[in-house]
Write a protein that binds this DNA or RNA. Structure first.
Lengths: 215, 215
DNA sequence: ACCTGTGAACCCCTTCACAGCG
DNA sequence: CGCTGTGAAGGGGTTCACAGGT
């Protein structure tokens, strides 16, 4: 089919399929049906086929999808052909933890620097990564073209720090601060509020308990 | 209106409104319009009104919503009236970081224990929280009724650990492992895959770059 | 005059079902 | 016969627009 503009819902699932394909490849599996991919991705087979069809016709009828070929195409479309550096703002508990977390670098997103306003932290190292002054942001972003900014700062300064990232040229932000950060068009922010996730879980737990008490 | 079953999309936004209301209350604001709440939540006013209408008719026409009253009603509906304990499985980088992270306890979710398979870690403390053996899970869950389980373990054991949580009686899980964890009905899992978020950002960044190059 | 609450229209996404190909 | 690719149907969520209350 002729693509042009993949639905957001599909974009959010592509990395899930990608993860499944990486696993299949490591297991030495050469081809996988939409059914198999669906099972490993926690969705249904229809959705997998529809989603993959937005990328093109990469499957073989009667057989399935070639794992390595699909991996290649997906990494291309997701922009994972090259590593994308990550700059973390905020060297508090969360920022330091993210800097030490291997899960980023392991999947192609090396953390290259931390920045913090606290002069006492500047010059220090966290898991081998240097802490820079907030003022160095422009230079850091210039050095690491196409990098992703991570907001691990308090909520009340999240917007201000986001603006500095954007001014420095960053177009992708992952926001861990419990605050809405709005940015100009062309910049993408993905919010990750961990306490908010717990509150959602709390709602469903309570709903379950109440219906159990009523039933 | 008569509720019964709030849409999932709305449930996911209620904590965002809750956060906005907490901020408004701290600022001493007594009432807020759907417009104001919308601005602080990053959505539009229609959505706010529709979402809040699922909880009941708490607004005053011509005026807006009473901040404290709405806070009270929402904390009741979200099950935030009492603290909900959190048990973290996995005392690796991520698990330890989450244990130290103040953002959980500050918002009503105290981390009460860590569990790990590594005997060398058992008995140790992380940010004042004790590391227990995986075998102690049942006792811990029994002691902390209604607790939320956090999976901060490697992907290949995520399902096995989730099963232990479920067997122990946990009904809410936050999964940081990059793996699909499926659970029996009545149990809720919310996946949080940080590298996956970066991949989604990578896709949009690449799309933006390509369209810029084409235009 | 202002703002909520809500039916209705709209739109996007999901699911179905099957034609088409291997 | 099996599995993909995809129109078409269906469902859920968003947005509109206004009636209704203050």
């Amino acid at each position: 089919m002729m693509d042009r503009s993949i639905p957001d819902a599909t974009v959010a699932r592509l990395p899930v399929y990608f993860r499944a394909l990486v696993d299949l490849d490591r297991d030495g599996t050469a081809t996988a049906s939409s059914q198999e991919l669906a099972r490993r991705s926690g969705v249904n087979a229809s959705k997998v086929r529809k989603d993959l069809s937005y990328l093109g016709s990469f499957g073989t009828r009667g057989v399935g999808y070639d794992v390595q070929y699909l991996l290649f195409e997906m990494s291309r479309r997701l922009g994972l052909a090259t590593e994308r550096p990550v700059v973390i703002a905020g060297a508090g508990n969360l920022g330091r933890a993210l800097a030490k977390y291997r899960g980023f670098a392991d999947r192609g997103f090396p953390v290259v620097a931390l920045v913090d306003v606290d002069e006492a932290k500047v010059g220090g190292h966290v898991g081998g990564i240097e802490v820079h002054a907030l003022g160095d942001l422009v230079a850091l972003v210039r050095r690491h073209v196409g990098c992703i900014g991570v907001l691990a700062v308090p909520a009340d300064v999240a917007t201000a720090v986001a603006e500095r990232f954007v001014a420095a040229g960053v177009r992708s932000l992952l926001n861990f601060a419990p605050a809405i950060v709005d940015v100009p068009p062309g910049v993408t922010v993905r919010p990750v509020d961990l306490a908010l996730e717990l509150q959602i879980l709390s709602f469903y737990a309570q709903r379950h308990d109440l219906s159990a008490a009523a039933g």
